[in-house]
Each structure stands twice: as structure tokens, then as C-alpha cells.
């Protein structure tokens, strides 16, 4: 294939002749690109932040609800409360799996398993020793705090970087 230098020269000559218009078009395209990318980034950041807030309040609600349930029930957890807590745990796991699409929160299914166990396993034992209600509440508190800490670390470290 031969290069038609004359044609190329004609195109270059045309572009130089309309340089202001060419630059305007390039700047418009570039500007739109930057606006769209920035919009996407902000939307993603807001979405992740909202999800983070929902997840945190879920963890706190789970702790508060289970604390009241166990202080009241003492030996057993009534069906309605167990189902309510289980639904919250399921919601929490789904929220965390969605959050993990944005950040590496380092919260895995094992932590949710531990939390669910501490909330609903009857009798609740650790190393073969049966735990009373107050020790159970302490354990729920400790797992919830661990999840909260991992959430804050994972999310804010990333949000501050981006």
C-alpha cells in the first residue's frame, strides 16, 4: 500500500486551518470524559459509604437486640426473636459481601458464623465449657466490636486513599 502524502498534507492543512474548532472539539470530549469518570467515582464512593453506614448500624442493632433478648430469656431464645436476629445476621452477611466488592473489609463468613453461634447456639459452649447469659453477651459484644473495627479500618482506609 502506498502512502498518499498529498492527501495527508491536505488533511493536515485543513486541520491547521480550523485549529480553534479542532481544539474546542477535543476539549469538549475530554471535559465530558473527566465529568463522567468523576461522577462515576463519586457515585461509587457515596454508594459504598451508605452501605457502610447500613452495615455498621446493623451490627449495633444485632448486638442491642441480642443483648435484650438474652437478658430477658436467660435460658432460651423465643422463636420470634431468634428469627428476627437470624434475618439481621443474613442481612449483615449480604451487606458485607456487597461491601467486599468495593473494599477488602477482611470480614469473612467465619465472623458471621461466630456471631450467629454466639447469638443462637443453645447451649453455647467455648472449649467445651457452657457459657452463661452474661458471658454470651460479652462474646456477642466482642465479635460485634471486631466486625465494626474491621469495617471501619477496611472502609475508611480505602475511602481516604481514593
Amino acid at each position: 500500500m502506498t502512502i498518499d502524502w498529498f492527501q495527508i498534507f491536505k488533511i493536515v492543512y485543513f486541520l491547521i486551518g480550523h485549529l480553534d474548532e479542532v481544539v474546542a472539539i477535543i476539549l469538549t470530549i475530554l471535559g465530558w470524559f473527566i465529568i463522567v469518570q468523576n461522577g462515576k467515582r463519586l457515585a461509587r464512593k457515596n454508594e459504598a459509604h451508605n452501605l457502610f453506614q447500613i452495615t455498621r448500624s446493623l451490627v449495633n442493632n444485632i448486638f442491642e437486640t441480642s443483648k435484650h433478648a438474652w437478658l430477658k430469656g436467660k435460658i432460651d431464645l423465643p422463636q420470634i426473636e431468634e428469627h428476627h436476629l437470624m434475618l439481621m445476621c443474613a442481612e449483615l452477611e449480604i451487606c458485607i459481601s456487597k461491601l467486599n466488592n468495593y473494599f477488602d473489609t477482611k470480614i469473612y463468613s467465619q465472623q458471621i458464623t461466630d456471631l450467629r453461634q454466639a447469638i443462637t447456639l443453645i447451649p453455647f459452649t467455648i472449649n467445651g465449657k457452657k457459657l452463661d447469659c452474661h458471658s454470651r453477651i460479652q462474646e456477642i459484644n466482642s465479635i460485634s466490636s471486631e466486625i465494626n473495627a474491621l469495617l471501619i479500618t477496611g472502609v475508611y482506609t480505602h475511602l481516604n486513599k481514593s
Partner: peptide, 10 residues
């Protein structure tokens, strides 16, 4: 179902 309590699973 999302309502499997630990005692049920155990």
C-alpha cells in the same frame, strides 16, 4: 430461608 439458628444447624 435465612432463618437457620445455630441450634437447628447443630
Amino acid at each position: 430461608s435465612n432463618r437457620y439458628g445455630s441450634s437447628f444447624l447443630e
